[in-house]
Amino acid sequence: MGVMIRLSRVNKVFGDLHVLKDVNLEVNEGEKLVIIGPSGSGKSTTVRCMNFLEVPTSGKVFINGEELTLKNRLHIIRTYMSMVFQSFNLYPHLTVLRNLTLAPVKIHHKTEAEAEELARKYLRVVGLESKAASYPAALSGGQQQRIAIARALCQESKIMLFDEPTSALDPETIQEVLDVMVKLAKESNITMVVVTHEMGFARKVADRVVFMEDGRIIEEGTPEQLFDHPKSERVKQFLGKILQH
């Protein structure tokens, strides 16, 4: 099992804000990595650096051993990566089906028929086959996020990045999205990096949990290690606050 993603001394600075400070992180092929931490800790920026939605101010990102650069970025994304966002970001002018087939047809050069078959397969996975002809605006937040996951799956990528996929959802619909993600984590060999506040999800599917604060990785370990026997005071304090809810 090789290293799929490697961040090497990654720094990110926005104006006066030093958001990431010398972040080193490796994600193995097929690993399910969950990143937790208080807001503003740099966890979203960390995943966004993995596909260069944010270009690191300094440091290097390697995908499957190859250094990610502005030049090969498109090639590497097309070969390896897909992403699910907090705000779904479905294309509102296209039907669900067209949302799913756009990249397979235009990027991966599949025929319309192949792409549609692919789309229907993944709509089944997320349990929304009946919504193929709908427009995103007609769907609930949870449904939109499941469609966004299906859209990412249609890229058939080795790596899926999730940037707080349930943070914008109603409490009632969070579960349906988490269920899909759990299924995906358990049944696929996709390398998943998930930024989330859902500790139950982390405990259930994570091979490894990383705790970030103030732009640094403070602690990492298996869910048991991190949730049940955290070493640092800060993690204990954070978990204490979360569990009080």
């Binding site: 596909n51 939605l53 498109l74 994304i77 097309r78 990566m81 897909s82 992403m83 966002f85 705000s87 970001n89 479905l90 294309y91 509102p92 002018h93 756009l102 990249a103 235009k106 990027i107 859209r151 890229q155 990045l161």
Partner: peptide, 24 residues
Amino acid sequence: GQFESAESQGFGYFGVMRYVILPQ
């Protein structure tokens, strides 16, 4: 988010514009 979504799918600048941004 629309630009980012298309970029994260591997669309280059002109693809992002042509298929996602301009139609909207």
